[in-house]
Design a protein around this nucleic acid. Structure first.
Length: 583
RNA sequence: GCGUUGAUGGUCUAGUGGCUAUGACUGGGGCCUUCCAAGCCCUAAACCCGGGUUCGAAUCCCGGUCGACGCACCA
């Protein structure tokens, strides 16, 4: 068994991950998070909230997982998120239809399927594999389609990313943040893509969890006020240029900015933040890198994009976080589609006085003269400069393609000084987008370890499986284990300690079944960082032992100190040796 | 979607036309047991689904589902 299989086997056996719909045979691309899995996932999400919502102040919102058609027409997902496929009728191979004809037409991906079919018969294009006849082009859209309401309700789609829900709330959100840039908004939730071929367990799913932040910044101000806090962080980069050389580079955030490796400071700050987050939850630093999208793989609207990639044993480096500068693409797209201006008005520090030539048509005279056309004529006149007005003849303007002659006396003009106190700005969007399920898997894999451990018998060792979770994310934080099950005093004491620890909000497991060694191993396997054992000394002097998962070492501590010590241990504010006297 | 390949208790696995389907680990109950999967007793639990061939199918054939790998795909 390779590591992937070992990890998945453990995850299945212990209740982290299960194939969905197993009872009915299962369906590819869907996974259930079991009891320990949901808990672990929630802990990852909560630390993410700690970073982005609490620390950065990007408030979280929740929008529907179903969206109406207009949203995805505007975002480009209806048109662009699908690929026309042609299947060979002879060998059955499927090809991208637009790729087949791109040698013959300039804009292959802009054609309808019917036009693609015409092209294929016109140029007599055959299957590149076997020269067989190609079938008709079929659209394969990666969005799940549904209809809203009864009958032929209006079309809807399951969202392919959480981001659009934030963009379309832009006006409300800008108002909430009192029209000031920058501001950020987050959302954690499910997204859906009808993948052609979901593979690799939880790496490519049809329903998956995203944690996304959309940060709206001034397009001319891409510095970051807190950059000094992270500029000395070391990161492993795999830039466009480094990829050509094929080697990773380690440098500080400051160096990456100064050498123009990362497009700008704001993006660099967020790469640093992602780096910190992934390390905080327990991703091995040596299996983490940031890879820059090459020019040709970047979405056409993005300026710069970096993927946080994590190394796995079977799949190599996998993309788990994308950090992109999406520019004003999405806001513009929704502005165009909805005919609502998605922008903010930014006041200048000092109002600017601007000299301007102003044409003032006399509407009292224009009206009777041109009647219905008067308004259009006035608009046309306003566009004119001084030289056109200073001619001796009547003024000639084009109105709706028709030349109109306007007497000079209906127009006056003057040089005015105008006060401009601000401007309308369409913000640029910086987007860190996390694939939580992928992070979940890599975390399991990086935490998974086996080692030889002593047994009760002398000289004999056995393999021990453990998940070395950071105590902050371990699903079960403390196990309480009475040494003997057949002693009512030990059991009662154990139950009382459990109750106290639960009151602290800890996730506690109580286990009195089997030998103590077996119970330790059970908890090692699910990554419980600490075990509290009640023994006969406890009944004498009210002390218990705390066992540390990774070292199997124990300390003895007084019950009155137990809660405080465990809290400090779990939050990382106490080293184990200080939690009691060594055994 | 195509090709290759596989699918047996919770997990791993034996069985390749023939009695109530093998074993280990795990789980549950008990005995014993004073700190790292000990021992003993009891117990629960499986042939992916649907057709076909056959007196008889977990086993052979066909189709489907799911998994792995390769191709394609991955805004």
């Amino acid at each position: 068994m390779d590591k992937y299989e070992q990890v998945i086997e453990l995850a299945k056996r212990r209740g982290f991950l299960w194939n969905s719909f197993e009872l009915y045979g299962g369906t590819a691309g869907f996974y259930d998070y079991g009891p320990l899995g949901s808990t672990l996932k929630r802990r990852i999400e909560n630390i993410w909230r700690q970073f982005y919502v609490v620390r950065e102040g990007f408030m979280e919102i929740e929008t529907p997982t179903i969206g109406i058609e207009d949203i995805f027409v505007a975002s480009g997902h209806v048109g662009g998120f699908s690929d026309p496929l042609c299947e060979c009728e002879q060998c059955g191979e499927a090809f991208r239809a637009d790729h087949l004809i791109e040698d013959y037409v300039a804009v292959a991906d802009a054609l309808t399927n019917e036009e693609v079919d015409e092209m294929i018969s016109k140029y007599d294009i055959c299957c590149p594999e076997c020269e067989g006849k190609l079938g008709k082009a079929k659209e394969f859209n990666l969005m799940f389609e549904t209809s809203i309401g009864p009958g032929n309700g209006k079309p809807g789609y399951l969202r392919p990313e959480t981001a659009q829900g934030i963009f379309i709330d832009f006006q409300r959100l800008a108002r909430y943040y009192r029209e000031k840039l920058p501001f950020g908004v987050t959302q954690i939730g499910k997204s859906y893509r009808n993948e052609i071929s979901p593979r690799q367990g939880v790496i490519r799913l049809r329903e998956f969890t995203q944690a996304e932040a959309e940060i709206f910044i001034h397009p001319q101000e891409k510095t970051h006020p807190e950059i000094t806090a992270v500029e000395n962080d070391l990161i492993i980069l795999y830039s466009d240029k480094a990829q050509e050389r094929g080697e990773l580079e380690e440098m500080t955030i400051r160096e990456a900015i100064d050498n123009n490796i990362i497009a700008h400071e704001f993006l660099a700050y967020h790469i640093a933040l992602t780096n910190r987050f992934l390390k905080r939850i327990g991703i091995s630093p040596d299996k983490l890198r940031f890879r820059q999208h090459k020019k040709d793989e970047m979405a056409h609207y993005a300026i710069d994009c970096w993927d946080g990639e994590i190394k796995t044993s079977r799949f190599g480096w996998i993309e788990t976080v994308g950090i992109a500068d999406r520019t004003d693409y999405d806001l513009n797209a929704h502005t165009k589609m909805s005919k609502n201006e998605l922008a903010v008005y930014i006041e200048y520090d000092e109002p600017k006085m601007v000299k301007k030539f102003a044409v003032k048509p006399d509407m009292g005279k224009l009206g009777p003269l041109f009647r219905k056309k008067a308004k259009d004529v006035a608009e046309a006149l306003k566009q004119l400069g001084p030289e056109e007005l200073e001619k001796d003849d009547d003024i000639k303007v084009l109105v709706n393609g028709e030349e109109v002659s306007v007497p000079k006396d209906v127009v006056s003009a003057e040089e005015v000084e105008e006060k401009i106190s601000g401007e309308t700005v369409v913000p640029h969007v910086i987007e860190p987008s996390y694939g939580i399920d992928r992070i979940f898997y890599t975390l399991l894999e990086h935490a998974y370890e086996t080692e030889m451990a002593p047994t009760a018998e002398d000289e004999k060792e056995e393999e021990r499986i453990l998940l070395k979770f950071k105590s902050e994310i371990a699903p079960i934080q403390v196990a309480v284990l009475p040494l003997m099950k057949n002693s009512d005093e030990l059991v009662n004491k154990g139950r009382q300690i459990v109750s106290n620890l639960k009151d602290m909000g800890l996730m506690v497991a109580y286990d009195d079944s089997g030998t103590i060694g077996r119970r330790y191993r059970r908890n090692d396997e699910i990554g419980t960082p600490y075990s509290v054992t009640i023994d006969y000394d406890t009944l004498e002097d009210d002390t218990v032992t705390i066992r540390e998962r990774d070292t199997m070492k124990q300390v003895r501590t007084h019950v009155s100190d137990l809660e405080g010590n465990l809290e400090k241990l779990i939050s990382g504010n106490m080293v184990f040796e200080e939690a009691g006297s060594p055994l």
